[in-house]
Amino acid sequence: MRSQRETWGATLVELAETNGDILVLDGDLANSTKADLFAEAHPARFIELGIAEQAMVGVAAGLASLGFVPWLSSFAVFLTHRSLDQIRLLVAQPGANVKIGAAYAGLLTGLTGKTHQDVQDLAIMRAMPGMTVLAPGDDIECAAMVRWATDIDGPVYLRLTRDPTPRLFDDTYEFAPGRVHRLREGRDAVLVSTGPQTSRCLAAASILATGGIDAGVVHIPSIKPVDGGAILTAARAVDLVVTVEEHSVIGGLGGLVAETVAVAGHGRLVRIGLEDCWGESAPNAFLLDRHGLSPERIADRVRRELGGSGRVASSTDEHNRGGDQ
């Protein structure tokens, strides 16, 4: 277990050993985002812009025009919300080679509360033409994404979380944009998730299995671009598709999957996430429980959607029936 923010900082330190164009621009949060690892290792290529996120985005766009590869360091909210117009006009529209390291994204921000919980970033960023939107599930995937994003030319939004995340992948992992990962097969339902929420979905699938419900898990780390065909294949194999995300149910992963299956004229979809509401400052377990994102709550919800607790007894029948393809 390593946090994504530490992985992000450490990977940039390593990449900058051989790539002299990498810069880290910070909005006075380096010791939170772990850009401080970079600052101490490569002080001349660490630019502290102070508490001035909007200007920071502009400065990054300018630097990118000279061939630098600027990575931004701030909390996701202060980038996707405070600096949205700058990201839109100065980065996405011209296709500037700026990499957005959006730390403390989602609900689990270390008790800071609704002001700091970015639960709209995926919706905002995926609606932005020209933006690549990535949400790693663990530290291995995170490191691979940092490498890939640094190498390609064009704007990338990297959704990073605060706390250590359980491992999903091993060292053989290779990142491919758009790729959808089927981490667990299941015939009754499929849980579709992104970021570290995928681990909680795997735990939910295990809980469901003990009750005789066979739920698959699909991980979508590349929100944009995305392999829509792979989403459809997974959705068509089951009666119930459940998206689960540390994000509003509007416009993020739930929106992505809803659009994909609706356009293809398929299926029954349930979206788990923040029900068009704000978060609050509270411990992680409290927040995950409150918003239906803990493994237990996800399992409850799937059981309910499949017809209540009586469902456990009839699971064999469901298995025999299979999907609706």
Partner: peptide, 8 residues
């Protein structure tokens, strides 16, 4: 959680 005294 559920407090009037939010972090901010």
């Amino acid at each position: 959680g559920d407090s009037r005294l939010q972090g901010h």
